[in-house]
Amino acid sequence: MRSLLSGETDSLKCMPIGILRLTNLRRFDKFVVGGEGPGNASYFGDAMRLEFAKMKNLLLSKLSFDGEDRKVNDEDEQLLEALHPPPSLEELGILYYRGSIFPNSLISLTNLRTLKIRWGKNCEHLPALGKLQSLEKLTISDLRRVKTVGNEFLELEGSTDYDPSPSSSSSSSSSVTAFPKFKSLFIWKMSELVGWDYRITRKDNNSIMPRLSFMDIGNCPNMKKLPNYLLQTTTMQRLKIRNCPLLQERDGEGEDWRKISHIPHLRGI
């Protein structure tokens, strides 16, 4: 079997443990995580026995955490860490995740090209993804507690509070690139998100999303500023901003509109 198409099974609450013995699967469009309930001793142990990482041929998977409310949010964090998606994955979706942080195992997905994270009501920070060399497309929506996007998202080595002194800017000539192949970014329904706040030492030597060509931002009522790297880019071809009143203002808070007028291939906003 190469594909298991269970995406339309809304009532599905858990997966049989033995299903991951289908090691030739390449497409798993809905894998329900959990379903045994809190307080059960086997709840976390079963996830360990699933041995998800052994599915070395898997290219696409959506991890959907079961929809039942639980008091202990770190259960989802433990489950996601235990599952440890295989490094062969090229596309991954994480849905209804209730942890407040993401495990470090995500940065081991060295072949990942597309990542979608949706409906994470307790997430306070985005996962550290900047070192994923293959990532091209990222969708983030309904992460209700994320207020800023900062250095933890970029995962740049040596990132600290930015020191504007001349000595700090010339202290190193090494170059670091975050999201080197990144092309498309979708940000939707981030009710608390204010904007980007990067504080980086060796500012002139760092490159962020050098190939970004499409950005879609919608329903972010508190977002005030676009990231500086976007305002300096020459690769952007399409920028969409919808239902973001502070960004869409042409004066005052919306001064970023004037700063992007130099982008040569920008077709519309």
Score class of each variant (00 low, 15 high):
residue 221 P to A: 11
residue 135 L to C: 01
residue 166 P to E: 06
residue 157 E to Y: 00
residue 147 K to S: 11
residue 119 W to G: 05
residue 139 T to K: 06
residue 111 N to D: 06
residue 170 S to H: 08
residue 161 D to V: 10
residue 158 G to P: 05
residue 210 P to N: 11
residue 113 R to M: 10
residue 129 L to S: 03
residue 160 T to D: 12
residue 135 L to N: 01
residue 226 L to A: 07
residue 147 K to V: 09
residue 142 D to S: 13
residue 236 M to C: 14
residue 114 T to G: 09
residue 124 E to N: 02
residue 222 N to G: 03
residue 191 S to I: 13
residue 183 K to F: 10
residue 223 M to P: 08
residue 146 V to K: 00
residue 142 D to F: 13
residue 122 N to V: 03
residue 215 M to E: 10
residue 171 S to G: 11
residue 139 T to L: 11
residue 117 I to T: 02
residue 234 T to P: 09
residue 122 N to Y: 08
residue 185 L to G: 07
residue 130 G to K: 00
residue 155 E to C: 11
residue 166 P to M: 02
residue 108 S to P: 00
residue 115 L to D: 00
residue 235 T to H: 11
residue 221 P to D: 09
residue 208 I to W: 05
residue 104 N to Q: 07
residue 138 L to R: 05
residue 127 P to Q: 02
residue 123 C to D: 01
residue 154 L to H: 04
residue 194 V to E: 15
residue 121 K to Y: 08
residue 234 T to M: 12
residue 184 S to G: 07
residue 237 Q to I: 09
residue 227 P to Y: 06
residue 146 V to T: 01
residue 225 K to Q: 14
residue 220 C to S: 14
residue 153 F to T: 04
residue 162 Y to A: 05
residue 234 T to F: 11
residue 176 V to G: 06
residue 227 P to D: 07
residue 115 L to V: 00
residue 158 G to S: 02
residue 191 S to E: 15
residue 199 R to W: 11
residue 151 N to V: 03
residue 198 Y to P: 03
residue 145 R to V: 00
residue 204 D to N: 13
residue 144 R to M: 05
residue 191 S to C: 12
residue 171 S to Q: 12
residue 238 R to K: 14
residue 110 T to F: 03
residue 102 F to S: 01
residue 102 F to H: 04
residue 237 Q to E: 15
residue 113 R to K: 14
residue 218 G to A: 15
residue 183 K to W: 09
residue 113 R to I: 07
residue 214 F to K: 14
residue 112 L to M: 04
residue 226 L to N: 07
residue 199 R to K: 15
residue 199 R to G: 12
residue 229 Y to P: 06
residue 175 S to M: 12
residue 214 F to Y: 14
residue 191 S to R: 12
residue 212 L to F: 06
residue 151 N to L: 03
residue 172 S to P: 04
residue 149 V to L: 09
residue 185 L to A: 04
residue 162 Y to D: 06
residue 157 E to W: 00
residue 173 S to K: 13
residue 149 V to C: 06
residue 195 G to I: 07
residue 184 S to M: 11
residue 232 Q to L: 13
residue 117 I to L: 05
residue 237 Q to D: 11
residue 210 P to W: 11
residue 195 G to Y: 04
residue 213 S to Q: 14
residue 189 K to G: 10
residue 134 S to C: 11
residue 211 R to P: 04
residue 220 C to K: 05
residue 229 Y to H: 15
residue 117 I to M: 05
residue 131 K to D: 01
residue 214 F to H: 15
residue 122 N to G: 02
residue 108 S to I: 02
residue 220 C to G: 05
residue 189 K to R: 15
residue 144 R to H: 08
residue 226 L to C: 03
residue 194 V to F: 07
